[in-house]
C-alpha cells in the first residue's frame, strides 16, 4: 500500500518539502560536527532540538498530507463522475451535484431576505463609467 500510495509522481510533488528538510538535515550535521562556541550541554541540546523537532514535525506532516492527497487522488480517478469539476457541472445543469441534505429543510435554516427588500436597492447604472471601459 505504502509504495503504491507514494508513487513516483507523488514523490516528485513532495520534493518541494524535501528541500527544507535537506537544509535542516545539513544544519543538524554542521551543528553536530562543528561547535565554535564551546561545550554547554544544555544550550547544545536546545540548539539541536529546535532543528530536530522542526525537521521531525515537517517530515511527519509531509508524510501524512502526501498520503491523504494521494489517496484522495486515487478516489478521483476511480470515480470521476462523483467528483465533477464545477465548470463541468455548470456546463450542464442536469449534472449538477446533489447535496447530501434535505434541501427543503435547509431552505428554512439558511433562510433569506425577501425579494421585496432587495428591490429597494435601486439599480441605477445608466451613467456608470464602468460599463465598457475594459
Amino acid at each position: 500500500m505504502s509504495s503504491r500510495t507514494f508513487d513516483r509522481e507523488t514523490l516528485l510533488d513532495l520534493i518541494v518539502n524535501a528541500i527544507p528538510l535537506v537544509m535542516m538535515a545539513f544544519f543538524i550535521g554542521v551543528f553536530v560536527l562543528y561547535n565554535p562556541f564551546g561545550t554547554d550541554l544544555a544550550n547544545q541540546a536546545i540548539q539541536l532540538s529546535i532543528v530536530v523537532i522542526t525537521f521531525g514535525a515537517l517530515f511527519v506532516l509531509t508524510y501524512f498530507s502526501g498520503r491523504a492527497i494521494s489517496k484522495a487522488e486515487a478516489e478521483l480517478e476511480e470515480n470521476p463522475e462523483e467528483f465533477a469539476e464545477p465548470q463541468a457541472a455548470a456546463a450542464d445543469p442536469s449534472e449538477a451535484t446533489t447535496p447530501d441534505y434535505d434541501e427543503e429543510e435547509f431552505g428554512e435554516v439558511t433562510s433569506d431576505e425577501p425579494p421585496e427588500d432587495a428591490a429597494a436597492i435601486a439599480a441605477d447604472d445608466a451613467d456608470d463609467e464602468s460599463a465598457d471601459d475594459e
Binding site: 518541494v16 562556541f37 554547554d40
Partner: peptide
C-alpha cells in the same frame, strides 16, 4: 541569547524561505 540557539533559528529561518519562494 546563546549563539548556538541563534544559529538554530537562523537555519530554520533560511529553510522557510524555500516554500515561500516555491
Amino acid at each position: 541569547i546563546d549563539p548556538r540557539i541563534r544559529a538554530s533559528f537562523m537555519a530554520v529561518s533560511l529553510a522557510i524561505a524555500i516554500p515561500s519562494a516555491v
